[in-house]
Design a binder for these strands. Sequence first.
RNA 1: GGUUCUGUAGCUCAGUUGGUAGAGCAAUGGACUGAAAAUCCAUGUGUCGUCGGUUCAAUUCCGACCGGAACCA
Length: 302
Amino acid sequence: MKKVIVIAGATATGKSAFGLRLAHALNTEIISGDSIQVYRDLNIGSAKLSFDEMEGILHHCIDTRDLSERYSVYDFQQEARAAIADIHDQGKIPILVGGTGLYLKAVLFDYDFTEEENEIPSSDESNETLYARLLDLDPESAKSIHPNNRKRVLRALEIAKSGELKSEREAKQLKKPIYDVTMVVLDVPREILDERIQRRVQTMIENGLEEEVRRCFEYPKTREYQSFQGIGYKEWKEYLESKATLSQTIEAIVIHTRQFAKRQITWFKHQCDATWVNALDPIALDQLEKQILAWATQEETQ
RNA sequence: GGUUCUGUAGCUCAGUUGGUAGAGCAAUGGACUGAAAAUCCAUGUGUCGUCGGUUCAAUUCCGACCGGAACCA
């Protein structure tokens, strides 16, 4: 199996910096595992590295979509795997850096998405009615989806329409990585992370986040885009409509970012087999780098 | 100084015609296979401002005091 390095963790834990460090040491390229950084004009609010900050390291899966476009795990799986293959062909070990847990897992594991229309399933039926139908069509999947989780119920019904059930599709998977993966989760104690988030948002404001938002989402129609769902963007809706103050907007961004970080931590804790490292401990990071470099030079396993 | 409001969960506020109280947000934990920075689930004891009075019983009624707001001087 080919090797892949993964640097994961909550927002504001220093993933990008550590990823760059490894990329230099291994003379390789980085693949961003992030659902918002794929959008071309979302720079400040998505905490995207600037061209200079990339320090000459090639970054994949960034700036690949226009604000009006939809994007999904499927797209990411295709494009990230293509980039991985390309880097492997150069005899290098790709580094996947990102905080979108599902995206990382879908690339590394044998998640199976068949080619299909990327449409948002919609319905005006009640949650109860939809769930009842799912119970009938795919009881196995229904068991693991809460009736109120309309999005998931609709998706499972959508899959069932194709003839194959969601539960059947997943049962065929081995649920094992398709690469030889070394995965690291960068960890920062919650209280400190909260402060870092506060500061980071403040910096975004100073760097002109409001201007970026106005430029990208000036027209109300654009605020229906998937890209507008990003934290740091959607919070400006009320502000742009003169229904909220600047400080309320900033506060909302901070709160949403913290809640997001919490969800990310929960995901990585339970969904992934990874080495957790205190990102604030320079000695631990040095050791980690050495370990990864040593692992990188080992023979490929079968 | 006077009048009228007001003080209940971290925040904004309901409520109890007197039997010690509950929403939203926040917070905490969790789920997660095509929107995932999304979506969803679970968790609510707090001297009901302080001190007195009435009462079998006061957060609820009465008084004083201490905060806050508005208006009048």
